[in-house]
Amino acid sequence: TYYTVKSGDTLNKIAAQYGVSVANLRSWSGISGDLIFVGQKLIVKKG
């Protein structure tokens, strides 16, 4: 599943919304830090 980052989103908010960890969200999407951008597509795998 892809999630497109919206204004005001954080990795914590997105992870909580999908019931996954921030570490997994980073790993799946190839992100090393906490910086995400509006319009960026993140990969989300539901448990």
Rank of each mutant, 00 (worst) to 15 (best):
V22C: 07
N12A: 15
V5H: 01
Y3P: 01
K41S: 09
V5D: 02
K13I: 10
K45Y: 14
I31Y: 04
F37C: 13
G19D: 09
T1I: 15
N24Q: 15
A16K: 12
L42E: 01
G30Q: 10
K41C: 14
N12V: 15
G47Q: 13
G47L: 13
D34A: 07
V22W: 02
K41G: 06
V44T: 06
I43N: 08
T10Y: 03
G33I: 07
G8A: 05
V44C: 07
K41R: 14
R26L: 13
L42G: 01
V22L: 09
D9H: 01
K13L: 11
A16V: 11
S32P: 08
N12R: 12
T4K: 07
L25I: 15
I14C: 02
T1E: 15
T1A: 11
I14T: 00
S29Y: 03
V5I: 06
G39L: 03
T4G: 03
L35D: 15
Y18N: 07
L42A: 01
T10M: 04
I36Y: 03
D34T: 08
G30C: 11
T1C: 15
I43H: 09
R26N: 05
V38F: 05
T4Q: 09
I43W: 11
K45C: 15
V20N: 02
G33T: 10
A23K: 09
G30I: 05
N24M: 13
K41N: 09
S29H: 04
I14G: 00
K6E: 09
G30A: 08
S7W: 12
K46C: 14
Y2M: 10
T1P: 10
I14F: 01
A23M: 08
K6L: 09
Q17T: 11
N24G: 06
L35N: 14
I36T: 03
S21C: 08
S7V: 15
N12P: 14
I43V: 12
D34H: 09
A15R: 00
K41T: 12
V22K: 07
L42K: 01
S7Y: 13
I36P: 03
Q17Y: 12
I31E: 03
G33H: 08
I31A: 04
S29K: 02
S29L: 05
T1G: 11
Q40I: 05
L25H: 00
S29I: 05
K46D: 13
K41F: 08
Y3S: 00
N24P: 00
G8Q: 05
W28E: 05
L11I: 09
G33Y: 06
G47K: 11
I36E: 02
V20S: 04
L42S: 00
I43A: 08
G19W: 05
V44R: 01
L35G: 11
K45R: 13
A23W: 06
D9F: 01
S21E: 08
K45F: 13
K41Y: 07
Q40Y: 03
K13Y: 09
W28L: 07
I43L: 15
G39R: 02
V5W: 04
G19E: 09
I36R: 00
T4S: 07
A23S: 11
T10H: 04
T1S: 12
W28G: 03
K46A: 14
G33R: 05
T1R: 12
Y2P: 07
G47P: 15
K46Y: 13
T1N: 12
T10P: 01
Y3A: 03
T4E: 11
S32M: 12
T1K: 12
K46G: 14
S32C: 11
G8M: 05
A15C: 06
G47F: 12
A23R: 08
A23I: 10
L11M: 07
I31D: 03
I14P: 00
G19A: 08
N12W: 14
G30L: 06
N24K: 10
S27H: 14
S27E: 15
I36N: 01
R26G: 04
Q40C: 05
I31V: 10
K45S: 14
D34Y: 08
D9Y: 00
Y18V: 09
N12E: 15
K6N: 07
G8S: 05
